[in-house]
Computed example of a mutant assay.
Amino acid sequence: MKEFEQYSDIEIIQRILNGQLPLYEILIRRNNPYLYKVGRSYNYGHEDTQDLMQDTFIDAYNNLSKFENRSSFKTWIVRIMLNNCYRKQQKFSYKNEIANEINDQSIPLFSNQKQSDINKIIMNKELNSIIENALQHLDIDYRMVFSLREMNGLTTKEAAEILNISEANVKVRLNRAKAMLRKEVEKSYTTADIFEFNLIYCDAMVNNVMSKLKVINQ
């Protein structure tokens, strides 16, 4: 498997479509962190988020032949995850507030000047609680832009494509989200410390998805 890890997503997809199903594990591992952060930012708990991730990976596999490489695979699968989150939200009649006000300046939320022990911060439940509670108070439009840009590292163009809004609106919503969150978060924390999908969960996700895909392909 390691010999294929340096392959691009497109090369791996082509090999999967040609019958090399085990290589799908690479795509799962590459995208686990992004999907997890999207689910948590949608205010789903850990278990619900994992269920949504599993559904998303299976949906992506079932539609892999339809992937046209017009955008990155990451952008494509994150969009599938967002659609699954939205459908689950609608199913349970959760309120989906829409925000309209925008501002065109973007100011960094976190400072990278201070060095920190990432592993210790990941285990810091107080930090996780601060971030999660703060995000829950944001309207979904701002919350998802923040998740895609700050937590998942997508470009403005990628986020705009996923959310079907203009790049200007992405910048505007991101700035407002940062302004709302800045009061709650210490500047010494980095976005890499938030909502980490730890290796133990990653391995379990790979095993669960690959087991289901083997059944599908029997």
Rank of each mutant, 00 (worst) to 15 (best):
I80V: 07
M81R: 00
L82I: 15
L82Q: 08
N83Y: 06
N84W: 00
N84P: 01
N84R: 14
C85Y: 06
C85P: 01
Y86I: 11
Y86T: 10
R87I: 08
K88Y: 06
Q89P: 02
Q89R: 15
Q90H: 06
K91A: 13
K91L: 13
F92E: 11
F92D: 08
S93W: 05
Y94C: 10
Y94V: 05
K95Y: 12
K95V: 15
K95P: 01
K95D: 12
K95I: 15
N96K: 11
E97Y: 08
E97S: 05
E97C: 02
E97R: 10
I98Y: 05
I98P: 03
I98E: 06
I98D: 04
A99V: 13
A99N: 13
N100C: 06
E101R: 15
E101L: 15
E101D: 14
E101M: 09
I102Y: 09
I102L: 04
N103C: 07
D104H: 15
Q105G: 01
Q105A: 05
S106A: 07
S106I: 12
I107T: 09
I107C: 03
I107K: 04
I107N: 03
P108S: 03
P108A: 02
L109Y: 04
L109Q: 02
F110H: 07
S111T: 11
S111E: 11
Q113S: 10
Q113V: 11
Q113N: 08
Q113I: 07
Q113W: 04
Q113R: 11
Q113T: 06
K114T: 08
Q115A: 13
Q115V: 12
Q115D: 12
Q115C: 08
Q115L: 15
S116K: 06
S116P: 00
S116A: 11
S116D: 09
D117S: 09
D117W: 02
N119A: 05
N119H: 07
K120T: 08
K120G: 02
K120S: 06
I121D: 09
M123S: 13
M123F: 09
N124G: 01
K125C: 07
K125I: 15
K125L: 14
K125P: 00
E126K: 13
E126T: 15
L127M: 08
L127D: 00
L127S: 01
L127H: 04
L127G: 00
N128M: 14
N128P: 01
S129W: 00
S129G: 02
S129Q: 11
S129M: 04
S129A: 10
I130P: 00
I131D: 00
I131E: 00
I131H: 04
E132I: 04
N133M: 08
N133H: 12
N133T: 09
N133Q: 12
N133R: 14
N133D: 08
A134L: 02
A134W: 05
A134G: 11
